[in-house]
């Protein structure tokens, strides 16, 4: 155990800690996408909803100084964007991919336009004091247990010391699982993504189900955006989502539209991200220096490989992308 000196251990713990931090928005967005897509509505607009929500959170926190109001605003904006998506895809049976894209492009433009108009800081929102943010929480006994070998430091440095939204994200996963597989809503949700006609003939409104699913998706994207702007960072920065919405989408597909595997995919992608930063410029034994860009592209490459059926098969809900119409 010679190699396991303090330095290495600290690096490992720090990497795991960072993994959890960068995975949080992915997990929230992946669960968001899962609700929408399980109901049969493709959502490539996770990115845009998260971005708009992040902007809302950054703005509200700067204006009111309240993290909770900011969270509320982020959820509100996420839901509002989702409402547009549902209106286009469910009510008007528009193309779901086009609608999601519209939301992404709209959010990308609007956040900067409004940000500059309102705050005049080049698209950024004002830097937030810690009272206006979700700050790290020390879990009970973190320091007391630190002396326990392996688990102690793991608890103190990785599990403990995150902000509330991280823990919320981690609870959302089992909650999602429970909703999808153990409740009436979940049963109907899974059914409507597979065969909406069966749901309709069973006397359930397809439109209402899909609206609920898409709105839940918007709310979760809102939490993710809020996390980015006022928990992980201390302000909204233009384009701060930087493709994480798409990575979350990839993770959800990677997890085959199931909550726990999707979360594992998020953690894996988050881990890659955390590692990428540390590996920069470091020569690894045997492989040599791994280009950071390769590690950054790995989530996308892996998802393509998965979709190509080279590692298992990702089967989407059967009715996904098809607007429901009673006319035959």
């Amino acid at each position: 155990m010679d190699w396991l000196n303090d330095e290495v251990l600290r690096t490992i713990l720090a990497t795991l800690d960072a993994t959890l931090r960068v995975s949080t928005p992915l997990i929230l967005c992946a669960m968001a996408g899962l609700f929408s897509e399980r109901s049969g509505v493709i959502d490539i607009g996770l990115e845009g909803k998260m971005l708009a929500a992040a902007f809302a959170a950054g703005s509200l926190a700067a204006l009111t100084g309240s993290a909770w109001l900011a969270l509320l605003a982020a959820i509100g904006v996420g839901v509002a964007m989702a409402l547009v998506h549902a209106f286009a895809c469910v009510t008007h049976r528009g193309n779901q991919v086009v609608s999601g894209l519209a939301i992404n492009v709209l959010a990308s433009g609007l956040t900067v336009v409004l940000g500059i108009a309102w705050f005049r800081q080049g698209g950024q929102t004002p830097s937030l004091p810690s009272e206006a943010r979700f700050m790290p929480l020390q879990l009970p006994l973190a320091d007391t247990l630190a002396s326990v070998p392996v688990l102690g430091p793991l608890y103190r440095d990785v599990i403990s010391g995150h902000n509330l939204l991280v823990y919320i994200a981690l609870t959302i996963v089992p909650l999602t699982w429970w909703i999808v597989y153990r409740t009436r809503f979940g049963l109907r949700l899974r059914a409507v993504g597979e065969n909406p006609l069966a749901v309709d003939t069973a006397g359930i409104s397809v439109a209402r189900l899909r609206y609920s699913a898409v709105l839940i998706c918007g709310a979760l994207c809102g939490v993710a955006g809020c996390y980015l702007a006022i928990a992980q960072n201390a302000a909204f920065v233009r384009e701060m989502t930087a493709g994480q919405g798409y990575i979350a989408l990839a993770a959800m597909i990677f997890g085959k539209w199931r909550p726990l595997p999707a979360m594992i995919a998020c953690l894996m992608f988050g881990f890659l991200d955390a590692v990428a930063i540390r590996l920069q410029g470091i020569e690894l034994p045997v492989i040599g220096e791994v280009p950071v860009q390769l590690i950054q592209a790995l989530p996308y490459i892996l998802t393509v490989v998965l979709l190509a059926g080279f590692i298992g098969r990702a089967v989407a809900p059967k009715a996904i992308g098809v607007p429901f119409s009673k006319e035959r």
Binding site: V84, F87, A88, C89, H92, G94, N95, Q96, V98, S99, L101, A102, I103, V105, L106
Partner: peptide
């Protein structure tokens, strides 16, 4: 994109 595409 929204009005000419999704809400065409």
């Amino acid at each position: 994109i929204l009005f000419s595409g999704a809400l065409a």
